[in-house]
Design a protein around this nucleic acid. Structure first.
Lengths: 226, 226
DNA sequence: CACTCCTGTCAATAATTTTTATCAAAAAAT
DNA sequence: ATTTTTTGATAAAAATTATTGACAGGAGTG
């Protein structure tokens, strides 16, 4: 199940539109017509992200955003602002407030969902993760030692991860088994070359759809090719 | 007006690129082609952050970073390193030196600006709020060395607190036991790596429900993940 | 001094990972 | 077509690693 997202907007049409598309994208959505009820609700239930209209009847969206971002209790809830006009001042203001992204009306639902996704993804890595994404289906976080295939996290062992990493870093080039072992263990220990094959097999298996990126070059070694 | 940022890089193209985008983002930028003139300048005028190339003609970026971070006069200037290759040693070195973040070339200007922002925001947040709240169930007060889980205060020893702190500060990244010990004791004393495990155990125990935030990455180290 | 609490070490165990061995299948060479 | 070489798959052994409980020395406290 995906994250909880709250939507706050006084225009019913927009509220429904946004809500519908986020639900369709798999998020758990709750709707709010004004800031008051929203602020009450987050005391009890915390969303991962809030889609917040800049203009609200009872309270400015800016105020709400400032409130959220200044309270350490809510500081890690992401805020995506909806602005009526693309006037730059609004935008900058929104971002200076600490909003994590913004979308200007009118917007396409597709764009909105894409941005929600992007912000939440960024959040998972705390925006500091150094990640690489390949062909949109394989993603690595080199610092967190994490790997995703089509958005789903898979578990690699340390050795598997390191082999995948070196292959990707040297992508396009063939690495001999010897080189790979050398990268893994230096001259700390002696390991027979067939071992690499087994790791590669495990890797391919776990990578599933992305497994075919690891190509074998007969008689030479392995190569990563997207 | 936004903060002052200095950029030090010997490659003119990169220097211009970085400078341009930072200016466009509203920062007050000054450019330096070598470490010498930069070091002279910070005597007179102090930036909030320095974008520093790892490779400089007259002096290694590493040296400059070490210099800044070891001098209490400059210790609170943030450093963002530019590294040519994502080769791990460079990266690790950079971070161990005390650099606040790094970007590997080639980088997108957008990413660079985002990281500058992130580092500066982090800095601001720290000076204002000495407290962090995670997922609404774990709260730390860095100045008071106090911790709450679901609103209830728990007692941590100094060492436990410091480990938790570094894990949270580097959240999303795996920290090796060596790094953790290094952070705790520097090279003042030699401690066996298994010791970290014991502290982690105590931490998890005391953290109760929040204990599962500390994940182990077999063969590598520990990671904080909310 | 006696006491408590913190920190570090050790050892046992449980769990996982890495390596090796073996055999089947595929590709290349003869 | 047959043989040789190389890789892929599987299972099992060997090695490594994390977790846990127990304990000892030492710093700090009353």
């Amino acid at each position: 199940m995906k994250e909880k997202v709250f939507v706050v907007d006084d225009e019913e049409d927009i509220l429904n539109l946004v809500s519908l598309h986020l639900k369709r994208a798999g998020y758990q959505v709750k709707e709010f017509k004004e800031a008051g009820s929203f602020l009450q609700e987050i005391e009890k239930e915390r969303p991962a992200l809030v889609v917040l209209d800049l203009m609200l009847p009872d309270m400015d969206g800016i105020e709400v955003c400032r409130l959220l971002k200044s309270d350490s209790k809510y500081g890690d809830i992401y805020v995506l602002m909806l602005t009526a006009l693309s006037s730059e001042t609004d935008v900058v203001l929104g971002l200076e407030l600490g909003a994590d992204d913004y979308v200007t009306k009118p917007f396409s639902p597709r764009e909105l969902v894409a941005r929600v996704k992007a912000v939440l993804r960024r959040g998972k890595g705390e925006s500091e993760a150094h990640t690489v994404e390949i062909k949109g289906i394989l993603k690595l976080d080199f610092e967190g030692y994490r790997v995703w295939v089509k958005g789903k996290e898979i578990e690699l062992t340390a050795t598997e991860f390191r082999i995948l990493k070196i292959l990707i870093e040297k992508k396009g080039r063939v690495l001999s088994r010897e080189k790979i072992l050398d990268y893994l263990w230096g001259n700390e220990k002696y390991v027979i070359e067939r071992t690499v094959d087994v790791h590669i097999r495990h890797l391919r298996e776990k990578l599933g759809e992305a497994g075919c990126f690891i190509k074998n070059v007969r008689g030479v070694g392995y190569r990563f090719e997207a």
